[in-house]
Nucleic acid binder design. Structure first.
Lengths: 343, 343
DNA sequence: TTGTACGCGTTATCAA
DNA sequence: TTGATAACGCGTACAA
């Protein structure tokens, strides 16, 4: 592997001069600059960023920790973060935790060992207050939490207003005539999931409707729980006429249950969901969805993080960026009055 | 930031001893080992992998370059690669190129500067033989190409047998009675796309059918081309009764065109595609698809790459792993004889 | 078994 | 402007 030393020898200059033409920090005469350029060219020299990182004590790398990159919500978030990161010459080190907090702990240790300059983090659900996150913050690594904020920790975040979005969604469901509305929530350990439930409850309360306890089912944002709880809801003696499924993965499970029971949406039941993958318009049923700005969450998060890194200041009063979500009304929430058998 | 030196001082041992207990390469007395552990604990020491990388001249990082992580095919591939990489203590540095070869060139330079130990690469389509890949190989960085192999380069690869899979798919379409079959291909600069076309043509030839020229449309594996060419096919005076769309993204575009023209699959036209995202079973129409083992491609690729890195041998005779694809027959390729108006 | 000293490829400081 | 040299934090050969 070619080094600056060899380049220097070939160009007949000192190693310092090579470094100066490389970084451009210190002026070097045009003549020598050219000699160095030629040597670099001929030797096929490629700078060693590892050595540079060690010297400069920064890596220009960001850790990106998400639940599962296979979930379109997160893959778009990663792309947004990548775009912003690359703009500032940062690289992304991406990890999936599958919402397992032990994985998250391991990953944070690895990332600290790698000396990433900052962390973009979608926290895993957990019962206790996540001390590993606090420790990482205390070690001097800035963190921006995306989509979810861990309880009781002062940390920057980029989220959407889940309560408002859920409320708007349920208001729409009410507006087309539904009164028997259920919800499949995410893990109650996640603020995101709790907020969506709150929005749901608020909308019902405003309509003077008391939700039936059995219609509030707690899932975990993964497909299987959508299937299981969907089945349960659909098989109950008096099933709701509409269900808000709190994310896309659970919606897939829910629709699977629907199909198995030979029920059809929206004929037999209306549904709406959070998240809105690109193919929503071309398949049936077309699902009414709260479209979250996943890409923007990633982008804004990376921008904020890089800003924090640059300013080097501790985050005594963290910034909480809230991005708007957009309700996309589609056929899955039909006008219930137009449907036979509806109350 | 705590260093081994400080740990050594606190534990009252030499810096070498600390290093030895850290790496475990050289035996150290139980008593001193314990002293070191305690010091590490109390100081909150975290090893600096950057320095270790510089010293050991390897980074335990793999570059992963794909078209677009937002495409479920690639996100699954990344997860497979991540799984295999983590198993061997390697980290993944992931990049998207959006199939732009200039981006690919930039990314390879960055990755070389970062001294990644190896590269997992989904090449971008390009007219010329990609010299930047050869250069990277010559620089001593092992590369495993995934899904696509660049023309005229000796390099390891993990792919599926696209020709066989396409042929099987078209044979199925023929078997349900279709004779007027079209195809929307990917970029002809990609071997993957060419193979799928070849399989298509072979199946037709075996059935003694000469494909109509206008029914072979060249796309680029992106949604927009599926839409545009789909529209073209569907609006032509004698449109095919079935179309093989060469990947999932173009299928989404195709279905959009279908919907706009108020045509229904499979009533008006049958379709099949490559790639099979998780939600295929719950939405209508359910698309007949060649399910590629995306996760396994990534996993096997990373395994092979790590093996190459370990053996340090040049790749004079590259390995070409072929993984099987599975045809999933669904309602989108209906029995044409049961459909009114079909010849 | 333990400690000392050197080097990995850079950048940065300081004389010249 | 340029060149020599000291770090950055770690692993390891070598001597003790």
């Amino acid at each position: 592997m070619i080094t600056t030393k060899e380049v220097a020898k070939k160009a007949g200059v000192s190693i310092g001069t090579v470094s100066n033409v490389l970084t451009g920090n210190i002026r070097v005469s045009a003549q020598r600059k050219e000699r160095v350029r030629k040597a670099i060219q001929e030797l096929g020299y490629h700078p060693n960023d590892i050595a540079r990182c060690l010297k400069l004590n920064r890596t220009k790398m960001l850790g990106m920790v998400v639940t599962d990159i296979t979930n379109p919500f997160f893959s778009q978030m990663v792309r947004g973060a990548e775009e912003a990161a690359l703009k500032h010459d940062y690289l992304l080190l991406t990890f999936n935790t599958d919402d397992r907090v032990e994985r998250e702990k391991q990953v944070l240790l690895v990332l600290r060992a790698r000396r990433v300059d900052g962390l973009l983090l979608v926290v895993a659900p957990t019962a206790e207050s996540p001390s590993h996150i606090v420790e990482t913050l205390n070690s001097g690594t800035p963190i921006v939490c995306l989509d979810r904020v861990p309880p009781g920790i002062k940390v920057d975040s980029v989220t959407v207003d889940n309560a408002a979005a859920a409320r708007e969604c349920v208001k729409h469901i009410l507006s087309v005539g539904h009164k028997r509305i259920g919800i499949i929530t995410g893990s109650m350990q996640l603020q995101t999931a709790r907020e969506r439930l709150q929005g749901f409850e608020k909308a019902l309360k405003e309509a003077h409707i008391t939700p039936k306890a059995g219609w509030i089912q707690q899932g975990d944002f993964h497909t299987q729980s959508g299937y299981r709880l969907g089945r349960e809801l659909l098989l109950s003696t008096d099933r709701p006429s509409a269900v808000l499924v709190s994310n896309w993965l659970m919606m897939i499970g829910f629709l699977k249950a629907l199909g198995e029971l030979e029920l059809v949406c929206p004929r037999d039941i209306s549904v709406a969901t959070f998240d809105d993958p690109p193919m929503s318009d071309v398949f049936r049923p077309q699902i009414t969805a709260v479209a979250q700005p996943a890409y923007s969450i990633g982008y804004a998060g990376a921008e904020l993080l890089i800003q924090r890194i640059a300013s080097k200041r501790g985050t005594e009063n963290p910034l909480a960026i809230r991005l708007p979500a957009e309700l996309k009304i589609r056929e899955s929430t039909a006008d219930s009055t137009s449907i036979a058998g509806e109350m």
